[in-house]
Design a protein around this nucleic acid. Structure first.
Lengths: 316, 316
DNA sequence: CAAAATTACGCTTGTCGTAACGATA
DNA sequence: TATCGTTACGACAAGCGTAATTTTG
């Protein structure tokens, strides 16, 4: 089975006649006859009902016709995309980001894309990581950022960095005897009332999974989804929380929250950039991927986004 | 650009070397070289960076690679589907039905499919027609039933029947001087308080559009979505409504509602079966389509679903 | 019997393989 | 200089066109 055969077959189906189709595709009619016979032999079905007044499709023929359209369309898209890829990147790229990462990444990313790729339309969508996983399975986004690639390991992915979760407190409500901002051992956490997202949230899953082997049981006073609400509550001194630094950088910069590393054990999670395999690569999506890496490198260098550095662990 | 060339290209990309790929696909290495050069000439891009240690993909090469996977996958699906089409229909078929039609159609349809196509898994999903239109644009359903094909006229569709909307009243609350169940002219409708769905509902759009040219303005006392709620309300005598007979056949059979044709003008709407062009035809979907026609013919013959018959109009 | 599809048969063209050549870490 | 990709060229088969044959409403 061959693209040319499929094109011929489409012409035959549309013309309802080998002779007419032969004229249309500029090929002698017996040649088409041969191709159809070859297809029928290969697929082991009858594709056409022949009559002296032309041909009609059998059911199998209809099935082949619709699939032939698919294949031809895919091939045409391929040609267009590759031809485009030589010139300036253009078109839409949709990018799913977990809210905590969107907070720190989406603005500089969008600005850089605007600047470097003026013809690319970036749709940065932020959502809980569960949704992003669904979108990567479907056709919704070209790229996504995930913490947990367990269920999508088959997809094309690359690790961006490793985030280290921190303990957050209002500046005037530091609950431990140590000085504010000094490392908090996991074993001390039960002393404080925590505000955490519900177990359907990726962050919560990660926290529970990391804490479990230590045998420590957290004192979760409030379960609340919505990052903004959690931060507000903690900033008012009505509890404490555990977040990635990027998720609360705004409050920390304004002095409304202070953060402290969590140790024994450290709570680290890898961050992956995942490509949707169902969405073919375009030049635009490649460039957005490249710029994402660039922007992240920059954010890390400027200390705006903190990466877990295994060396600091070893130095202890 | 040719399927074979794409297969070769995928092998080259995966092996990172023309020579290695040549072994894998059992072709002499210079032949692959030729094919790549031909592709590059046709597409007017460079696909490979050559080195004496192998080749690496350029950006355009990556774009082609991902599209090549698409094309090859589409072709494989085509082969499988056509081979399957010779044997017993099997697989999943999803079918979007407007709620009013689902009420009368989905059970007999599902039963017939179960009986005649035991290996086919029918997913009959009922929803407002707006959703069904979206699903037909997307990848959600194979088949759908719609009233209005204005925006999807390009899709493959066939008219199933024409429904005639009727006036519904509680049996003991007939509001007109005529005998209960006798035809109701549109001009009489303003006398009664109607319960109708909101304007986002397909039925309401259709009613408004049909009434408008007559200059009559309806007395819509309540806008309420949810067919069940509307029928309950009317059955309790708290208003009157306009529906397709199929949408209220349950209440009519139980004697909780009576219905009357609406005349001057009649309110008719065509019903279309629409095929999703993005979902390739399978044997199973063909058979479901056939059985749908069969079941509808049967429902019409048994009077369970009433079709508008233009002859009765002419007879007036 | 007429219109259309199939079979038969040379011929062209595209694809492959072998062999020689060229480029680079 | 060894390894890989490219160029050159002859061989073969796939696909095409012309012509004759078969099929069927």
């Amino acid at each position: 089975m061959d693209i040319r055969q499929l094109r011929y077959f489409v012409a035959i189906a549309e013309e309802g006649s080998l002779s007419a189709a032969a004229q249309r595709v500029n090929v002698a009619q017996p040649s088409l006859s041969q191709h159809v016979i070859a297809l029928e032999r290969e697929l082991d079905v009858t594709l056409l009902d022949r009559s002296p007044r032309g041909v009609t499709l059998t059911q199998s023929g209809e099935v082949l016709l619709s699939h032939a359209h698919e294949v031809i369309a895919a091939l045409d898209r391929a040609r267009d995309a590759v031809r485009q890829s030589g010139s300036e990147p253009q078109g839409a790229v949709s990018f799913g980001l977990p809210s905590s990462i969107a907070m720190v990444l989406s603005v500089p990313l969008a600005e850089t894309v605007r600047l470097e790729l003026p013809k690319v339309k970036l749709r940065a969508i932020d959502a809980m990581s569960g949704f992003i996983k669904d979108w990567l399975d479907g056709q919704t986004v070209d790229l996504g950022i995930l913490y947990d690639i367990g269920t999508v390991r088959h997809l094309n992915h690359r690790q961006l960095m490793t985030e280290e979760l921190h303990f957050f407190s209002a500046p005037d409500a530091w609950p431990f005897e140590s000085s504010p901002g000094s490392p908090v051992p996991v074993s001390e956490l039960p002393q404080v009332e925590l505000v955490l997202p519900s177990p359907q949230h990726g962050l919560r899953v990660m926290i529970d999974r990391s804490i479990k082997p230590t045998g420590v049981s957290l004192n979760i006073a409030t379960e609340m989804d919505g990052l903004g609400h959690i931060k507000t509550m903690v900033a008012r001194g009505s509890g404490y929380t555990i977040l990635a630094p990027a998720a609360a950088i705004d409050y920390v910069e304004r002095g409304e929250l202070i953060m402290a590393p969590i140790v024994e054990p450290r709570l680290v999670r890898p961050v992956y950039l995942v490509r949707n395999p169902a969405k073919p690569v375009t030049r635009a999506s490649q460039e957005v991927e490249r710029i994402t890496l660039e922007v992240i490198r920059d954010l890390l260098a400027r200390g705006i986004w903190q990466a877990f550095d295994p060396k600091s662990d070893a130095a202890e």
